[in-house]
Design a protein around this nucleic acid. Structure first.
Lengths: 192, 192
DNA sequence: CGTCTATTTGAATGTACTCAAAAGCGGTGG
DNA sequence: CCACCGCTTTTGAGTACATTCAAATAGACG
């Protein structure tokens, strides 16, 4: 379990044994059964979560009760209400386990102290955020540019592991289309 | 000119006089007349740009020749093809001045060295990227959730300085709708 | 087997798009 | 200072596509 996050981190920065130990000492194991909410609106968000195994979603519920999925997370991904986490504001999102999941959490204050002691970790999280930022830019570009059919196909191509594990209902929520529409899109794809 | 970026940076981190001097020594002044391209596809992107004054856009041109604007930048904003800049890959975007502009550029290698010498700057850029990441998340959420009319109104509310300075044609490209559609939306807003 | 949830289908509606053209606006040069 | 040119915005009519609402079917799980 610890192995997976260490591998993850050392893909971006080099760590000594003692640094690994120090970092791992700051992590807490969290388990979340399917349908458990890790975060809900108005929670104070002090943690971000690394997924050791399982599958989760981050979504916003609008006034009409529609779910809008901002992010999925599977093995080796991070998830949180990042706006609330970064800014120290109350959450707007729900974070919910789609499968029974095992996570490692890290606390924001603990992280800020770690940055001061070992700046390399600040580098790691800078690089992680840069990567996430770039992915979101690509997602926006696709939403400006591509048809819903193309966006669905790209989703399947980009995240085959997610596509296999979540319902189409979820994927529709992520793409911003209605499940009925996605069903018709899938029908059309199968015909060709 | 240097003042504006120093104010900008010191909103997030505290700097000594010598640190300010060191940082400013790394910046280069760039001027770009209206319609000048700072970056175009396949360029190697070694710089990101801080806007001292002026107005620019970052856009993608698809196969059909449609512009999709990913970002505007006015005073106190940063702009680049960040994917290319962070990853050291060739550009996919155009960065173009909408008005005559004055910018300060910083080179990626120079920045990476600065992070090693003064980790505080790595903090600054981490915080800047976190903020940008959060903004993109909000933009995606809006595109999932809101009608085009609502998104236009939110754009006007969020970026009144930009709305005043760019054409509706540009705003339509940014929102991912056709200029004709935006025109009809505006007409409807004025009626009420 | 029965229940709950997810997926599919149908028909009617609505919203944005396409294409084409006109009107408005700003800047330039005669 | 006016006429013209290029670009932006508006308008119209027809089309395409996603949505809504309702209902049927299919699958998963206990």
């Amino acid at each position: 379990m610890i192995n997976s996050i260490v591998n993850h981190v050392t893909k971006h920065i080099e760590l000594s044994e003692s640094e690994i130990e120090e970092f791992c000492g700051l992590l807490e194991e969290v388990t979340a059964q399917k349908k458990t909410l890790l975060i809900q609106p108005n929670d104070i968000v002090t943690k971000e979560y690394y997924v050791v195994n399982g599958c989760l979603k981050a979504y916003y519920l609008d006034e009409s009760g529609n779910k809008h999925i901002l992010q999925f997370a599977i093995e080796d991904w991070w998830i949180s209400d990042f706006e609330a986490f970064f800014k120290g504001e109350p959450a707007n999102l729900y974070i919910e386990a789609i499968e029974d999941s095992v996570l490692l959490s890290i606390n924001k204050n603990v992280l800020d102290e770690l940055y001061l002691r070992i700046p390399k970790f600040e580098r790691f999280f800078r690089l992680k955020t840069e990567g996430a930022f770039v992915s979101l830019r690509a997602r926006i570009l696709d939403s400006l540019q591509k048809t819903n059919k193309e966006r669905y196909l790209k989703f399947c191509e980009l995240y085959p592991q997610i596509e296999k594990r979540v319902t189409n209902y979820h994927i529709a929520n992520y793409l911003g289309i209605k499940p009925e529409s996605l069903s018709r899109i899938r029908k059309e794809i199968n015909r060709s």
